[in-house]
C-alpha cells in the first residue's frame, strides 16, 4: 500500500482551510460566530457604496471636503464608515491637472470600510506591476484617456496607509441631490481607473 503523502499539494486549498478552521475553533482561537459574521459582512454589506456616499458628501459640502482631505479616516467615520483596514485612509483629490490612481504593488492593501474587498483586477500581478511602469497605457486600457496636460500620480498602498481617490464631480450635475450623486460614483473612479460620468439624459 502506498504511503499517503502529506504535502500541501495533496490537499486542495479548501481542505487545508477546513482543517485549519477546525483546529483554530477547537482551540478557541477563533469563535465560529465571529468568523461567520465577518465573512457575511464582507460578502453582503461592505462595498463601494460607502465610499460613494463619502465622495458625494464631499462634492456638496465644502467643509466636509476639507475635513476629508485633511483626515479621511476621521471624515469617513463621521458617516459611520470605519473598521479594519480603514485606520489610516488618505483622500486624493483629482483636479483638471492631476489624476490619482491607486495600486498595492506588494499585495492588495485597500480601504475596506469604504470600498469593500478589492476586485480581481486590483489583485492581479499584471495590474500591480504595469500601472507603476506605464500608468497612461493601463488607464487607456481601462477606457480612461487623459490629456497630455494631466499629471498622473500613482500611489502605492501599504498596510499602514490606504487611499481613496476623490473623483471630479461631473459637469451638469448641479441639480442632483447628494443621494443621486452618490449613485454616479463607481468603485473604479475611487481607485482612479475611471472618471465619474454625468447621468445620461
Amino acid at each position: 500500500m502506498a504511503i499517503q503523502t502529506r504535502t500541501e499539494e495533496s490537499f486542495t486549498p479548501a481542505m487545508r482551510t477546513e482543517a485549519l478552521e477546525d483546529i483554530l475553533t477547537e482551540r478557541g482561537l477563533v469563535d465560529p460566530k465571529v468568523l461567520a459574521g465577518l465573512i457575511k459582512n464582507f460578502e453582503e454589506n461592505v462595498g463601494p457604496m460607502n465610499g460613494a456616499r463619502v465622495v458625494a458628501r464631499a462634492w456638496v459640502d465644502p467643509e466636509f471636503r476639507a475635513r476629508l482631505l485633511a483626515d479621511a479616516t476621521a471624515a469617513s467615520a463621521e458617516l459611520g464608515y470605519k473598521g479594519a483596514q480603514g485606520e489610516c485612509i488618505v483622500a486624493l483629490e483629482n483636479t483638471d491637472r492631476v489624476h490619482h490612481v491607486v495600486v498595492c504593488t506588494l499585495c492588495s492593501c485597500y480601504p475596506w470600510p469604504l470600498l469593500g474587498l478589492p476586485p480581481g483586477w486590483y489583485k492581479d500581478p499584471a495590474y500591480r506591476a504595469r500601472v507603476v511602469r506605464e500608468p497612461r497605457t493601463v488607464l487607456a486600457e481601462f477606457g480612461l484617456t487623459l490629456g497630455a496636460g494631466v499629471e498622473v500620480r500613482v500611489w502605492d498602498s501599504t498596510a499602514e496607509v490606504r487611499y481613496l481617490v476623490l473623483p471630479q464631480r461631473p459637469a451638469g450635475t448641479e441639480g442632483l441631490t447628494e443621494e443621486e450623486l452618490a449613485a454616479l460614483v463607481t468603485r473604479d473612479a475611487m481607485v482612479g481607473i475611471a472618471s465619474v460620468a454625468a447621468p445620461r439624459r
Binding site: 468568523l35 465573512i39 479594519a84
Partner: peptide, 16 residues
C-alpha cells in the same frame, strides 16, 4: 466558499 473562510480566519485572528 473556502476563500471566504481563509479570509475570515486571518481577520478573526487579527481582531483577536
Amino acid at each position: 466558499p473556502w476563500e471566504g473562510r481563509a479570509f475570515g480566519l486571518a481577520l478573526a485572528l487579527h481582531e483577536a
